[in-house]
Write a protein that binds this DNA or RNA. Structure first.
Ligand code: MN
Ligand code: MN
Ligand code: MN
Ligand code: MN
Lengths: 227, 227
DNA sequence: ACTATTTTTTAGATATATCTAATTATTTAT
DNA sequence: ATAAATAATTAGATATATCTAAAAAATAGT
């Protein structure tokens, strides 16, 4: 039986693997808010079930089967987020928490009907790509706003979705996917970024700009993505 | 913590109590598909939590707190059923199964937004009353179609919702809440009921007519209700 | 009233997913 | 290369919700 816990582990492993390659016990424990001991015991089970490749003391990688389940749950999550926003009038800072629970409990029927009502959408309210029904994730090459230099004009593509307060603040400034930002100035030593958006200027700290992903306008490094 | 299991027990106890008064271990076990031993151990816990009044070897009754939770879950269930039918195009034989899972996982926000979209509805797709937000169930006096005598003209008010095949059959005959039925003939010894509905005639067995509740036209006995 | 049947509870086991504390392995620093 | 620090695993405990088998209580039948 694929329990909710198993689904959560696979989802977290998938997301961690997008950035780094090998995923370690530590990182999984931190993301899930459980102890390392709990992670080790679950990794053994996931390995038993052939959902991950597990080499003790090294790290884990998803198998084909594991990735399939992870993408399935991520599809549920992102479709739900968009559906809650579009059909039920949720604001973009409320959708994540609700989707986080429901993603484990909706049927394929529910998933398909949401997708149909929404016209088979490609992105969720935070700009994250929605995996297709057959499990293909359209990963893009984006950079964090923190890595953009002064003088650049970039387009917001995706923002982190799990911090409601952050989302409300972004919303207040008008920072949404597809919106354009002028980077006016970048203070040294990880100082705030001075930007202009829709005529108004703001100074954004690094913990915030780290959670905004934009088009790589002046080509730079560091691809990223979360949901 | 009010687990899904606790919610399921309280819901079942509530529904059993609508008919009989004292609810016994046996009946709960049967409804939930678990052993009697499991029920006993859960009853002890529910009693600890002050959700039921439990007298070993006698039976149980919900406390105010227990009933509140039961009605809350039943409200979720019935709102979900109607929402799935109205907003997502589910047929009336599909909604129960999906609602049975989701009822435990939606937030108050979700509940309220569904209710708003649906215009604060009073009945689910099977004619069952939806408890109000503040926990009031509008119980009605209905009789089962099986108890109606020949010559009567009755109005369908509610049908059992957990058997998908039965619902499809009723749908094919056009038996829905608010529809009128003429009872032409009643075979003796629990034999089939000969009815006319929308011009067409049918013969319905007792296991079916037991699951259809109608207005008490020629006043009779036996109030009933399920969802 | 006594016995048989039915119902309910208790005792003890299992499975899942956690945790804390102790141990072991790996990595980093001198 | 060895010691110190970090990371991961093991051992053993806890909580929840189940089960089977045995014992006890309540009910029904003669
Ligand atoms: Mn799915
Ligand atoms: Mn999102
Ligand atoms: Mn509620
Ligand atoms: Mn119903």
């Amino acid at each position: 039986m694929i329990t909710q816990s198993i689904q959560d582990y696979l989802k977290v492993i998938y997301k961690l693997a997008v950035n780094r390659k090998q995923v370690n016990t530590n990182a999984i424990a931190e993301r899930l808010g459980v102890t390392q001991a709990s992670v080790t015991s679950m990794l053994k089970k996931l390995s038993e079930l052939n959902l991950i490749e597990y080499k003790p003391y090294y790290g884990v990688e998803l198998t084909g089967g594991g990735e399939k389940i992870a993408l399935e749950i991520i599809r549920h999550h992102r479709l739900l987020e968009l559906y809650l926003a579009e059909a039920l009038g949720y604001s973009w800072d409320q959708v994540h928490e609700e989707a986080e629970k429901l993603e484990h409990h909706i049927s394929e029927e529910f998933e398909d009907r949401m997708a149909a009502v929404l016209g088979d959408p490609d992105f969720d309210p935070h700009g994250a790509p929605i995996p297709s029904k057959d499990g293909v994730m359209q990963e893009r090459y984006l950079v964090s706003l923190a890595s953009v230099g002064a003088g650049a004009r970039v387009q917001v593509k995706q923002v982190s979705d799990h911090n409601a307060e952050l989302l409300r603040y972004l919303g207040k400034m008008g920072i949404y996917p597809e919106v354009e930002i002028d980077v006016l100035e970048k203070a040294p030593f990880g100082g705030p970024l001075h930007i202009r958006i829709a005529g108004r200027e703001h100074h954004l700290g690094e913990s915030l700009t780290n959670q905004i992903w934009v088009t790589p306008q002046p080509a730079r490094d560091e691809p990223e993505a979360t949901s």
